[in-house]
Design a protein around this nucleic acid. Structure first.
Lengths: 194, 194
DNA sequence: TTAAAATCTTACCATACATCAATGCAAATC
DNA sequence: GATTTGCATTGATGTATGGTAAGATTTTAA
């Protein structure tokens, strides 16, 4: 595969830990690149998620289906939150309750999760990185809980705007509505106010 | 310190990874035991959390103060969720937005977080355990988000009852109310229905 | 280019839960 | 034992958000 794509991933990891050349080499051997079109389902509901993916380009959405309605768990794109997976399914090896979908076409780097975890055994650095990644995901999830438990829908919308300003004009608003936990109609009213 | 207390911790860790004797030895050297009375504040708001603690006995509560009201993040006790800390503060080394308080008297094992993470460097097993712990916390946090985002207050109460049946008669109900994200009045009405 | 589908907005009404206030009860304190 | 304090409950009322439906607009597809 092309080095230029994997460098994005290496640079991202290198923000947290110092990757050795052999770490990069081991990773590189296991990576593949996957192009995705809009509306392609990457992980369907009920399937165990077996790969960890990394955004090279495009925007991706993770959502659940509850009473026939899609409820967005989060978005993945290059500059923020670039790891794409149904993490709960990946970590617990249970069928995914979440659907992972491409919403803006692009490319993902992909690695089998078994290959990824096998790197933990040969590289303490990558093992540490795995821990850091999990810790960071936990911190972000706690912030999300805080916002859902204490904040009004309007507050959550303004927070979203600060965190993901780039997304507003790139994706349908009802995706955002379900992310902040309101109906599209309510989001429309919130937007009207401000 | 007494071995009998630390065995509780070792056994708990051993459910996830195989601890060597030297792992236990290294841990043991760093552990202290702390007794706590009811209403003792273990971590006050605004202080950076520097220790990781483990429940030997008693019940502990982590909460935030929002608009003068206490909002419970979670409970810690022996059989479930035994690690006590303001994790976000611990992991990010920022002042804690959360207060950690003893609500039923008991004892905690305590280790300086810097000591804990220094064990990661000398023991791959403990490094792996740190990762697993973070991953598990993440999965639990995602379940919490799911419940706050999709479920009614009544649903959240019945879920709570399944998850923490032992707590109902041990702690004030308004703690539970703020955990499931409703007022004590609403919880009372929910309980009346069922 | 036109038709079809998806998206966004607005209006009206319904509902879950919050807020405020009063009361009873139980536990802690004197 | 009396008194205070905290907790649980109940009722009346308020408010934010949901549900439904219709129309306007944009995007997609034929």
């Amino acid at each position: 595969m092309e080095d230029s794509n994997s460098d994005l991933l290496f640079d991202f990891i290198a923000k947290t830990v110092d990757l050795s050349l052999s770490d990069k080499q081991s990773l590189l051997e296991k990576l593949t690149i996957e192009p995705y079109d809009k509306h392609t389902i990457i992980i369907p509901q009920g399937q165990v998620c077996k790969n960890l993916r990394f955004v090279v380009s495009g925007i991706y959405r993770v959502y659940r289906i509850e009473n026939g309605k899609e409820i967005t768990s989060y978005f993945n794109y290059e500059s923020r939150n670039p790891f794409v997976a149904s993490f709960v399914s990946l970590l617990t090896e249970t069928p995914s309750q979440e659907v992972v979908e491409c919403i803006v076409p692009g490319k993902l780097l992909s690695i089998k999760y078994t290959d990824w975890t096998s790197l933990y055994d040969i590289s303490p650095t990558l093992n540490t990185y795995g821990r850091r990644m999990a810790e960071l995901n936990y911190v972000l999830a706690m912030e999300r809980i805080e916002s859902l438990q204490y904040k009004s829908a309007t507050d959550r919308y303004t927070s979203f705007m600060k965190l993901y300003p780039a997304l507003l004009n790139l994706i349908p608003h009802h995706y955002i509505a379900s992310y902040i936990g309101v109906t599209p109609e309510s989001l429309s009213r919130i937007r009207k106010q401000s």
